[in-house]
Design a protein around this nucleic acid. Sequence first.
DNA 1: AAGCTCTACAACCGCCCGTCG
DNA 2: GCGACGGGCGGTTGTAGAGCT
Length: 228
Amino acid sequence: MRKPCCDKQDTNKGAWTKQEDEKLINYIRAHGEGSWRSLPKAAGLLRCGKSCRLRWINYLRPNVKRGNFGEDEEDLIIKLHALLGNRWSLIAGRLPGRTDNEVKNYWNSHLRRKLMSMGIDPNNHHVSQRVPLHQPQNSGNVTLLGGPVNHERMECQQLNPVTENDRVSDSESCLEDNASMLPDLNLDLTKSIPSPPPTVVEWRPESEELKASSELGNATKPTLLLFR
DNA sequence: AAGCTCTACAACCGCCCGTCG
DNA sequence: GCGACGGGCGGTTGTAGAGCT
């Protein structure tokens, strides 16, 4: 039986106060991140270590981007979700300054609804049977906010649907195929810190980059800007 | 103006994984 | 190999505020 991460009787819950935020920020500035379990006591906070970690990562950390998601970010989230499923940390890793929690919330409150209104099942990104009348139907291709989505790409997910309980290994087998079909997505799935922005281009051989951009034909697509 | 419903999002919870002794 | 621990992740809940009746 493992110990609970903190003694719940002695911890505050709910919204963080300004004073608590300041204590946490000051402590981390002085001592750095880590040792979350012992941090609250050391920082003089009546909070669970996990709660401190979450607060820091999602809101207090420098360079955390707050506010509305841009169209390019939406586009990217949808594409990545189609590939990765609900692995928010991986998706957030490709969005500079965004956290998994924020991406997850945004998906659940905005993008799910948006896809459903377009007649797309947000769980598997398949076109549902009942496509709304205002949504033009393409033969074979569905336009997903700035990029055509090939049904062949979906096939892997149909065979291997990403379920809520899937772990990375389950769908990774699918990723390589998907990645090759979506050349505008860099699917280096090593997690990157939300900031500074990923510098994927740096390790990419120049010839390959040129080749990729010529394959894409449209190097100014919003999604691509995130990888530059 | 009051009450109700809906929406967005901050925060919590439980589980899983990697590491270490 | 095993268990404890710390950290991370994804699902879910709680709640404040907006919008509607």
